[in-house]
Write a protein that binds this DNA or RNA. Structure first.
Lengths: 178, 178, 178, 178
DNA sequence: TATGAATGAGCTTTCATTCAT
DNA sequence: AATGAATGAAAGCTCATTCAT
């Protein structure tokens, strides 16, 4: 139901990801969505509302899952690395990172994502390396580093082309704490 | 001499950094540079040329310095972290990262920066940790991780607000290799 | 209905005829048509489309009529001369000839007009001068000459101011073939 | 001597012929002439002066030659047809005809050319067909027709592509008067 | 909801022309 | 005579947005 609205958002998602928000005209969105130009403004009074709606409805920071973590630190980090706690299509991820510079809403999502990622990494390390708890500061740095690399990959990998193997990363971080 | 051209580039640099390339009109650039609109196109036939010229003339990947590295790995990494091998103002850095998604020239600079950064980190670790040379793969991951965090900071720090202490990072990486 | 589009074409037709395509600005067309500047580009994405549409919609090469020709050659040519097989206003005719040099579409129309004109003249002479059929080459030259003078008048008369009387022309051509 | 001025005129001649006066910018002329933009305006205060100078200096209507005409009418016309009494390069001829619609100076040259052409044709026919002198009106039409076809060829031949053989034309006109 | 014509501000770019050197 | 930076009006065109139907 409400086919048009969805088609508009689909088209905008694809175009924003490819060309960027500013360089995408509402006319092009309507054309790609096969919807009359006027209808776009029926659902989204301003062009900006299309972007905000996309971020609002098509990106979400996930809660940590219920399943128990693997007992070893490398395994725990590896599982974390296997999937960012961000429910969003590849297109939406690109949009989120690209527009974060200029749009608060996108920036807030990324901040939340970063925070959640660090929190999970910290918790995973705390649980699997009880001995390391003594040095809380070092553990924090390890968690932040882990999160930074994952977000770096998400954001800049398609630019630099070099990818860090998640397993090797998990292994590296673990070693630093033992 | 050639005051106007410089003023145009200065104005563009500031505005592109603040608002992004697409959202900055040539009229605003000319106004900020206090030159007539037409003059901008005398020096830069297309708006895009302003951006490309900025990247070309105001960003450069530095060659590694001559000075000897500190003998300890943490110290060597720390010195590396203290300054990216990128000769560019803070504004130009923002522009470089923001436009990398859509402009090949910017993307190539970042790729080169990443490569140079990894190369230096690798070399620093090889020289200061001769024993680690045995495990080349792990050393490579360590170098890449180090570079990733530095670029992540450069790119996303002003978004997430969390900063990883470079000294602690250097320490962490070093530990993982011992 | 669709008043604006027609008004734009009307205004363009008048202005192109008077000043030429290149020297007529879209702003002047919109002003003369009493429509906002933007609307012109709603109907015609490029300025050139206005010209091409005019040529396409407002000039047409006519098919020969059904009515029987007068039995005598001079009469037959005279009727031909009385009306070019070109359905187009005087303004459109001027535009067609003036822009033929630089626009293929206009050139093609004139070529078609020339061909049709020669074809009709040849046929008129063949039918009314059965005896002349023997010298096909001379008849062809006569037809081509007749067509050339008519198109010359159309194109250059308002320049030179001298007009050849069509009846006298028909008479002259006929005499040459007897 | 005065190389620059000549180079500007040469470049303008080529460009006006190819693209038309309006569509040729002074910058393009200067570029093609390999002359600084400012210099053009030193020699020609206005762009229009370039065109007027070209017409003034590089087109001229020729006086009739001294040599005696061939004694037969077809031969006399044939010689006339072999060369228009217009001293001008092919480029200048195109410019003359193309700009005649909008520039009085060009129009006046063509009018003069037409008049001279008719005058010569009339005189040729009078001299070689003394018997025809009786019907002055018919002779006038013949001369005008002859001139019209020659100018038509000059102006529209490269458009329609069909060329009337001058010998056959001379023959046709002659026959009509006998 | 749906439609696409209408609007006008603003965009990038072009241009003829000026002028200090 | 030579030069190219400077000027600003105006060009073609794009755009988000409105609105009558």
């Amino acid at each position: 139901m409400n086919d048009s609205r969805t088609r508009i958002l689909d088209a905008a998602e694809a175009l924003f990801a490819e060309t960027g928000y500013e360089a995408t005209s509402t006319a092009r969105i309507a054309l790609a969505a096969e919807v009359p130009k006027g209808l776009l403004f029926h659902y989204f009074p301003q062009k900006l509302d299309v972007l905000l709606t996309l971020i609002d409805e098509r990106t979400a920071i996930e809660e940590p899952p219920e399943e128990p973590l693997p007992p070893d630190p490398a395994g725990a980090l590896r599982r974390l690395a296997s999937r960012l706690p961000l429910r969003a299509s590849p297109s939406m991820r690109r949009i989120l990172f690209r527009e974060a510079d200029t749009h608060r809403t996108a920036r807030e999502r990324i901040t939340a994502l970063n925070r959640e990622l660090v929190r999970r990494a910290r918790r995973a390390l705390e649980l699997t390396l009880p001995g390391a708890r003594g040095d809380a500061a070092r553990l924090e740095v390890a968690a932040a580093t882990f999160a930074a690399v994952l977000l770096y990959q998400e954001n800049l990998f398609h630019l630099t082309g070099d990818r860090i193997d998640p397993d090797a990363l998990a292994d590296l971080i673990t070693r630093a704490l033992m």
